[in-house]
Design a protein around this nucleic acid. Structure first.
Lengths: 178, 178
DNA sequence: GTCTATACTTTGATAGAC
DNA sequence: GTCTATCAAAGTATAGAC
């Protein structure tokens, strides 16, 4: 991927994490990336929607891998892996001034009712996350769905409370119930 | 509450559920409520932000009561209550064309980084929900936090998958782990 | 309390020179 | 590939008649 393209995606990602998809303008993406409007449209002729889809796909894969790595590093026990997942998420929100650690859930909720392309991209990412988590949990797909939903909901709670405690509480409660 | 004020809140609520806070314009609120701009600003001099806070507070209390009623009606067993909560949520999203059943989580995530008044209003609602759920679960606040986070995350998953199944899977997995 | 008209800004997107 | 200039539409908010 070209450097310019990567800079646009990173800028859009950072802005989506703070202000969401609808709360981020293309103007802000150009300012944050240091590129003029024309360059942005050269790399993403589909405009903001195409940028959104690319952000969801690129960072969706990245964060999926990152979380799996953290869980595996916590050992073979299911409880320890679940605990590591939520404690890690709590640490990220606390060190990042309660910016959303990941834009996908926020974008998904915003656009689901009127942007099929973006909504479908989010759905694909969530399916992969759930499949990957289930593989780590002896195929328990329902509980894998709980993990993904709880971490997304936990981001909301921790963001408005300005504390990692909700995410940690979720990790405690779920790791005791594996 | 005056009828006009109520119409504005209901219109804003319905639009927030579909398009989120930033995705809803004041113009759309006037059209959906059938009221002119002047009336809206007469009742909410603080504009969109004041409407947002009122929507979060009013419907936050309403939905909290509604969910508690569904859970209590499911009997005294914890597992049955948890199951009823998520099955009820799944039924609502399915019958409502996958519109967000409740705008608070979506608004919270969108505005947490730049609108303190709205963010705090969301935080207050979530605290009350968690307290109320904990009271139904013999004071288990961590698991009450799981329930709130999982239902919010489940809304996201069900919305983009256009299926109530993620919410139902969460209900199955969690009710088996009370 | 209700309504029309409008001021001012920001939005997503395009044209065309370099 | 990069950049400047600009458009038409949509955004929030206000003024003031009724």
């Amino acid at each position: 991927m070209s450097d310019t393209r990567q800079r646009i995606l990173q800028a859009a990602h950072d802005l989506f994490c703070r202000y969401g998809y609808n709360g981020t303008s293309l103007k802000e993406i150009t300012l944050q990336s240091g590129l003029p409007t024309g360059s942005v449209y050269h790399h993403f002729p589909g405009g903001k929607e195409e940028i959104g889809v690319a952000v969801v796909q690129h960072f969706g894969a990245l964060y999926g891998d990152r979380v799996l790595k953290v869980m595996r590093a916590a050992g073979d026990e299911r409880g320890a892996r679940v605990r590591a997942m939520f404690d890690g998420a709590a640490a990220v929100v606390e060190s990042g001034n309660y910016v959303d650690p990941c834009p996908i859930g926020g974008v998904a909720r915003e656009v689901a009712s009127r942007n099929a392309a973006l909504s479908d991209a989010c759905d694909q990412v969530f399916r992969r996350w759930i499949d990957a988590a289930a593989a780590l949990l002896e195929g328990d797909e329902a509980f894998a769905t709980v993990l993904v939903a709880a971490v997304e909901g936990g981001f909301i709670l921790s963001r408005v409370r300005k504390s990692g405690e909700p995410l940690r509480a979720i990790g405690r409660a779920l790791s005791a119930r594996c």
